[in-house]
């Protein structure tokens, strides 16, 4: 991770090392409190994926791929999609698709409003890995010039 030739300068790397964990934690906070305060799965997922993109920009591509590679991102994206549909389909057991069958709990508490936090988590998996995968694909694409071999 500390190869001085890859990525940006020492200042950027130091600041990134300090802040990237906080960015990831903030994304998880936004996702898990989506039903209590503004935010939710989409916004939190984007913040989580930005923390990995941050590592990729500052330390070079290899450092980011040691943490998350394309296979893991693809796995998490499919997992998020299947989790979302599965939670929605469980509601069919006691009624209809997307039925919120859990107890609603007290308002303003973290464990409230039934299935909505679980939906938020599933969406955050999907958005975070999907966005990260798009950025990976677009950054890795190097088109060989004419007469040059890849």
């Amino acid at each position: 991770m500390d190869d001085p030739k890859k990525g940006m300068t020492l200042i950027v790397k130091t600041i990134t090392r300090l802040t990237v964990g906080l960015i990831l934690l903030f994304g998880i906070y936004i996702v898990s409190h989506g039903h209590v305060s503004p935010g939710g799965g989409f916004a939190g997922g984007v913040i989580i994926s930005l923390s990995f993109i941050h590592i990729m920009l500052a330390f070079g591509e290899e450092a980011a791929f040691k943490k998350v590679n394309q296979g893991i991102a693809s796995l998490f994206e499919s997992f998020g999609a299947i989790l979302f549909i599965t939670i929605a389909a469980i509601g069919m057991g006691s009624g209809y698709f997307f039925l919120n069958f859990l107890r609603k709990g007290e308002p303003f508490k973290l464990f409230s409003s039934g299935l909505i936090p679980l939906y938020n988590i599933a969406i955050s998996f999907k958005v975070a890995s999907g966005l990260f995968m798009i950025v990976i694909l677009l950054m890795l694409l190097k088109i060989p010039k004419k007469g040059e071999k890849q």
Partner: peptide, 14 residues
């Protein structure tokens, strides 16, 4: 009906 304090989330996800 949904128990979510954030009304946007309750509309979007319920």
């Amino acid at each position: 009906e949904t128990g979510a304090t954030n009304l946007v989330t309750s509309v979007v996800l319920d």
